[in-house]
Computed example of a mutant assay.
Amino acid sequence: MKPLYENCIFRSAERARAFDFLGEELVDHSMKWGRGLADTALFKGKLKHLELFVLRYGAEVTVDSDTFDGFALVHMSLRGGTGIEVDGRDLHVAEGRAAVIAPRKRLRLHCLQGAERMVVKVPYELLGPAPERGEGDIPVGSGFMVSRSLTPQWVALSQALLGMLAAPSDAVFSSAWVEHFERSSALFLSSHQPDPSYAWMSAENVREDTTRVASEPLALSHGAQCMERALEYMQSRMFAPISLSDLARAASVSERTLNVLCRRFHGVAPMTLLRNLRLDAVRSRLLLQPDANVTQTALEYGFAHPGRFAACYRERFDELPHQTLSRATR
């Protein structure tokens, strides 16, 4: 993230100034401040088409917005979490996860105190052609999470984009190559939507789409719904102590049933899944913030024993944390 942190375009403790500046730079919106002291900072980098930001408010804040004008936003939580309500769908973007949003009607974001996120502004024109595209059509769904299995790939693409920003001044990239890479990054998002039928929806069709999406969870098996509740509980408490009994209560099943479900859907025991999610989040932070302190980051995620943490990290990623940092700074 160093190329972005080196270009701070706004910083202020005044809430009114933050509202005015962010409205002009990102999207027109309204803001409601909550707990904590405002310390708004916006860092920016720009390629040929894509704009990359790191944004933090300091305090807890709720942001409301309507439709975007010709672009989608990719939100990736770097620190803390963000709750997103877009056109009737609820998304929880835990630390290390990413979501794509392009509201047809209404957007609300709730950022926790101290939260920080990376935002990529992607023009619709980069997201690929569509057959019989009509005026007002939008190339991505109104809101969806980048899947857990694909998040490392998005992190790698983000690192490559940041690397282009960090290139020395005498490095001359081919304009055609830069555009190709930007389009490839955007296409990665549009082509990995949970349901391709969400793509190329006009604003007039959003009501039908929202109704269909809202009914989809009913089609999930009872076991899948219980497992999803357990996962949401894990993601919303990435820094807090969690026991197996806590997870079972969140999923509304017994500990034995949760163990069976977790092994069926994820191939591991519940506490191993929790550990893996936290290891993934640590890795995402190390890749995106090369100046991060490994020990402090591990402690934040509940790894109290450095040696045991390093062993678990190596077992999962086949490298030690400091090796991840070394690769991120190259």
Rank of each mutant, 00 (worst) to 15 (best):
S221M: 10
Q225I: 01
C226P: 00
A214D: 07
A214C: 03
S215A: 15
V213P: 00
C226R: 12
G223E: 09
E208M: 03
P217R: 05
C226E: 02
S215T: 10
S215F: 14
M227I: 02
R212T: 02
Q235E: 14
S221D: 11
T210G: 02
M227N: 05
C226Y: 02
E228S: 10
L218N: 08
M234F: 10
P217Q: 08
G223W: 05
E216F: 13
A224L: 13
L218Y: 12
T210N: 03
R237L: 06
G223M: 02
E208H: 07
R229G: 00
E232M: 06
R237K: 15
E232T: 03
T211A: 14
M234S: 06
E208Q: 10
E208G: 05
R237H: 15
A230Q: 04
S221T: 15
S221K: 09
T210A: 13
L231N: 12
R212V: 01
Y233R: 08
E208P: 00
E232R: 15
G223K: 05
Q235H: 14
A224H: 10
R212W: 03
C226H: 09
Q225R: 15
Q235P: 00
L231G: 07
A219V: 03
A219W: 11
S236N: 08
L231M: 10
C226W: 01
Q225G: 04
E216A: 14
V213K: 13
S221Q: 09
V213Q: 11
R229M: 00
A219R: 13
T211F: 09
L220G: 05
Y233P: 01
V213M: 10
